[in-house]
């Protein structure tokens, strides 16, 4: 682990309210796996692999990619991999799209697809097939697992992971695109399924999936951009739907979508930066949903990724489509 304080060192010159506590966030993330004397640690086992993706990505964006030992991370990821190519949340947990995507994202970030092949012959192909089998041949959308729940989150996850592995040809992209279109609403935004209310999280999944499919031309960019810009509230924070409260995680869902539409300038970046920074725990590190609330690694990564989109000085550039370092997605996608 790197003991040198990387990017962020120069930040001490910033006014207190604009300060990002890089070292404390790094220590907070490193501490997450040592909290076995807290009940919460055990009650959140079903999020372990997602948590690792969130923590690792936050560390990469903070400029501390080596703060978690690579070997340990990979050993855990492989311990979640099932014979059929799906990943569970932790050893002993069933395979599901949500964890499979996190597993692939971690392998991509750590450039570890060769190690995957060493662990499981044809592993990449197997994972791709696990994902492809979850596509509904009639509607083009994806289920989360064998039990059949469908949601645009899973469709996005499938396209995300498959594109990182160069395996998009395993699924029917055209059908998936049609399904996304059927989830569009009169406000220009998207829901979980046809008929469902627009929600910023689902907007991210749909716009990102369309970006991967090369079909952003189908988005009503003027209307959706307007709807997204109205997520910003007076205090600078963003909400997920009309007339709801602000929350740091929407800094990611809303802003990443705006970045993909080239409309980031439609909100006030400085005010949002201040809001995100107020959500830090200045002593123990980590970010919360709102100022003064309890931190968690989910809000930590999406707050930091939001700051990266806002070009906060010293942070590594994030890819708005994948929520991963841009350098990583460039390497995987060959562009």
């Amino acid at each position: 682990m790197s003991l040198v304080s990387g990017p962020g060192r120069g930040m001490t010159a910033m006014p207190a309210e604009m300060q990002l506590y890089v070292d404390r966030h790094v220590r907070y993330i490193q501490s997450l796996d040592t909290r076995k004397d807290e009940l919460e640690y055990w009650l959140t086992e079903h999020l372990r692999l997602n948590g690792l993706y969130w923590g690792l990505t936050a560390l990469h964006l903070l400029g501390h990619p080596d703060a978690l030992a690579r070997e340990g991370v990979l050993a855990f990821v492989f311990s979640c991999l099932h014979e059929d190519g799906g990943f569970g949340a932790a050893p002993g947990h069933d395979a599901h799209m949500l964890y499979t995507v996190s597993g692939v994202q971690i392998l991509a970030t750590l450039d570890a697809f060769d190690e995957l092949e060493e662990r499981m012959k044809g592993g990449r192909q197997k994972i791709g097939q696990y994902i492809a089998n979850l596509q509904d041949p009639d509607t083009g959308t994806f289920a989360g697992d064998e039990w059949g729940e469908q949601d645009t989150r899973f469709l996005y996850g499938a396209l995300n992971a498959l594109s990182l592995m160069g395996l998009l040809h395993l699924v029917d992209i055209e059908k998936a695109v049609q399904h996304i279109q059927s989830c569009a609403n009169f406000d220009g935004a998207y829901g979980t399924s046809p008929g469902a209310e627009s929600h910023s999280g689902q907007v991210f999944t749909c716009v990102a999936a369309l970006t991967i499919a090369g079909r952003l031309d189908l988005v009503n960019q003027e209307k959706l951009g307007a709807w997204l810009s109205e997520r910003q509230l007076k205090n600078g924070g963003l909400n997920g739907r009309p007339e709801k409260k602000e929350d740091v995680c929407y800094s990611w869902w809303v802003m990443s979508s705006m970045a993909m539409l080239n409309k980031l300038h439609w909100i006030d970046g400085e005010k949002l930066t201040k809001f995100i920074l107020q959500c830090q725990d200045p002593e123990l590190g980590g970010l919360a949903d709102r100022p003064g609330d309890m931190v968690d690694v989910f809000h930590t990564v999406f707050g930091i990724a939001g700051l990266s989109l806002l070009k906060y000085p010293g942070l590594v550039e994030v890819d708005p489509v994948y929520c991963m370092p841009r350098a990583v997605t460039r390497r995987c996608l060959g562009k």
Partner: peptide, 10 residues
Amino acid sequence: MASHGITRGP
């Protein structure tokens, strides 16, 4: 791991 609206304690 994704807590919402819970005030930060000591």
